[in-house]
Design a protein around this nucleic acid. Structure first.
Ligand SMILES: [Mn+2]
Ligand SMILES: [Mn+2]
Ligand SMILES: [Zn+2]
Ligand SMILES: [Zn+2]
Lengths: 129, 129
DNA sequence: CATTTATTGCAACATAGTTGCAATAATTTA
DNA sequence: TAAATTATTGCAACTATGTTGCAATAAATG
């Protein structure tokens, strides 16, 4: 039997927060906004669980920073595809999932591609004015 | 006047190591191989300096891990371009610069692209047999 | 309400990266 | 070659990030 899922106040709060946010959030940002209401470790575990449940996904920026975003923000809800790029605004720091397909990349002979991570750094629409 | 550059034993050792290695190396890997011969912090500072000098570059993998590689390995030596992709083998863990141009990506209106980071995870030629 | 067990808090640990400062040593200059 | 300059290093101390074990807590189910 598959492990059952329980909805807790902390988990709901994290999801609510990710859902409200226009930008992907780091563990630290989430933990701080939840100020005192739950433990650091709990936030890590909730995020891990959300990812395992397919509700959220991890985004590693080009400097190594890790952010989290809900998956609905990055697909049409119907077919869930993770082959989209992530945009990191160097001005406001915002990180967002763009509905842009990752172009096909040709690898050298014998290489086998599993998945691709593409992060674009630049100015977002709001900051580029 | 621009800050002068000094070649020290530690710096030479790090460069030698990166130059010999077929894969990009993390700070930890470099530090361990240098075992006891110099401080942890020194390795960080040497790597920062190599990057500032344009000799090496940083590679952030899709899980947030950071690796370092010499720049000569990732260009033809003549024109130095950093718009190439990095390959991370999920089997041997090797990380290498591939001489493959990053395909053009079309961003939504008003977005301004500065630079792109593209990491492909999969099986390298050696592991894919 | 009682049972089951997923989730949490806490302590403790591991790794990654940064900063200040005094000591050291690579270059430059005399 | 010896002295002066200052880039580099070692060390201590600190912050940030992430993980694990275990006992206590609290969802869900009946
Ligand atoms: Mn996304
Ligand atoms: Mn490279
Ligand atoms: Zn912006
Ligand atoms: Zn391999």
């Amino acid at each position: 039997m598959t492990k059952q899922v329980r909805n807790t106040a902390a988990k709901t709060a994290v999801m609510e927060m990710l859902s409200q946010s226009s930008t992907a959030l780091s563990h630290g940002e989430i933990y701080q906004s939840l100020a005192e209401t739950c433990d650091r470790v709990t936030v890590y575990r909730i995020l891990d669980r959300l990812i395992e449940e397919g509700v959220a996904h991890r985004i590693a920026l080009s400097d190594g920073t890790v952010k989290y975003a809900l998956c609905e923000q990055c697909g049409d809800g119907h077919h869930h595809a993770h082959s989209h790029l992530h945009f990191n605004c160097v001005l406001c720091g915002g990180v967002s999932c763009l509905e842009v397909e990752i172009p096909h990349v040709q690898l050298p002979r014998k290489y086998k591609m599993h998945d691709v991570s593409l992060v674009v750094n630049g100015l977002c629409a709001a900051c580029n004015s």
